[in-house]
Amino acid sequence: MYAFCDPATIFTNSTDIERNLVNRLKEGNPDRLFLLPYNTNCHWILVILWAGEIFVLNPLPRGTNFPELEKALTRAMITFNVQAGRGNKAPSIKYMPGCPKQPGGIECGYVVMRYMREIIMDHELSFLKKWALKTRKLICSEAELDEVRFEALSHIESFM
């Protein structure tokens, strides 16, 4: 049901993003929900590719667009759809303004990890409705971020 795109394979060069993303979409079932953590010049966001749409979750409190990333993602989705015989319709891009925000200026990576955790734990996939509302001003608490920090640390310690 879920697939992850390795952020190490996605570079700032839009050609790399397109090629790597098309190759990743070809692996297995293309109708899965693809989670793509992406670093936009020292800031993490989460991109979700699902059902022919692109969702962008940005933990910054103010709205920010990423036009170069949007173009690369759109081209990659069109290329994949053409190669898979699914037509050449451009995907819609939706920013999720109601997703929880980072409490300070440096927690974006942990907030993105928290997004992924909540999405996977949400068996009814209600995050789309919940986070699409602009009126919601959720801020991730330090306790919620600590849960993610401890899980990440526990995972890393298992390799030592």
Results as ranks from 00 to 15, higher is better:
Leu57Gly: 12
Pro91Ser: 02
Gly85Glu: 08
Asn58Met: 00
Arg75Gly: 03
Ala90Cys: 08
Pro100Glu: 15
Ile106His: 10
Ala72Thr: 11
Asn58Asp: 13
Gly87Gln: 03
Pro103Ala: 13
Glu107Asn: 03
Tyr110Pro: 01
Gly109Ala: 13
Thr79Ala: 06
Ile78Met: 12
Arg62Ala: 10
Asn65Asp: 09
Gly63Ile: 06
Gly104Tyr: 15
Asn88Cys: 12
Arg86Ser: 11
Asn58Glu: 04
Asn88His: 14
Glu70Arg: 04
Gly98Ser: 15
Leu60Gln: 09
Val56Tyr: 12
Thr79Trp: 07
Ala72Lys: 05
Glu70His: 01
Thr74Ala: 02
Arg86Tyr: 09
Ile106Arg: 10
Pro61Gly: 06
Ala84Pro: 01
Lys101Thr: 11
Lys71Ile: 06
Gly87Glu: 03
Pro91Phe: 02
Pro59His: 12
Gly98Lys: 15
Val56Phe: 12
Arg86Ala: 10
Pro100Ser: 14
Gln102Lys: 02
Gln102Phe: 03
Arg86Phe: 11
Thr74Phe: 00
Lys94Leu: 07
Tyr95Ser: 11
Asn58Thr: 01
Ala76Ser: 12
Tyr110Lys: 01
Tyr110Cys: 01
Tyr95Arg: 07
Glu107Gln: 04
Thr64Ala: 03
Tyr95Lys: 06
Gly87Leu: 04
Ser92Val: 05
Pro100Trp: 06
Ala84Phe: 11
Gly109Glu: 04
Val82Phe: 07
Thr79Pro: 03
Gln83Asp: 10
Gly109Trp: 01
Asn65Val: 05
Gly105Thr: 13
Ala84Thr: 04
Ile78Ser: 05
Met77His: 00
Val82Pro: 03
Ser92Gln: 13
Thr64His: 07
Glu70Lys: 03
Met96Thr: 14
Arg75Gln: 12
Leu73Pro: 01
Thr79Val: 03
Ser92Pro: 10
Arg62His: 10
Ile78Val: 15
Pro61Phe: 08
Glu68Leu: 07
Leu73Thr: 02
Pro67Lys: 14
Leu57Gln: 09
Leu60Cys: 13
Tyr110Asp: 03
Lys71Asn: 05
Pro61Lys: 04
Tyr95Asn: 07
Gly105Pro: 05
Pro97Met: 15
Pro61Cys: 09
Arg62Thr: 09
Pro91Thr: 02
Val56Pro: 06
Glu70Ala: 07
Pro97Val: 15
Lys94Trp: 01
Gly104Phe: 15
Ala90Arg: 13
Phe80Thr: 11
Lys71Asp: 07
Ile78Trp: 06
Thr64Met: 05
Leu73Asn: 02
Cys108Ala: 15
Gly85Thr: 09
Glu107Met: 01
Thr64Ile: 04
Lys71Gly: 04
Gly98Tyr: 14
Phe80Asp: 08
Ala76Gly: 07
Ala72Trp: 04
Arg62Tyr: 10
Thr74Pro: 00
Glu107Cys: 01
Ala90Pro: 09
Gly87Asn: 05
Pro97Leu: 14
Ile78Leu: 08
Ile78Pro: 03
Pro100Thr: 15
Glu70Pro: 00
Gly85His: 09
Ala76Met: 07
Val56His: 08
Asn65Thr: 10
Thr64Tyr: 07
Asn65His: 06
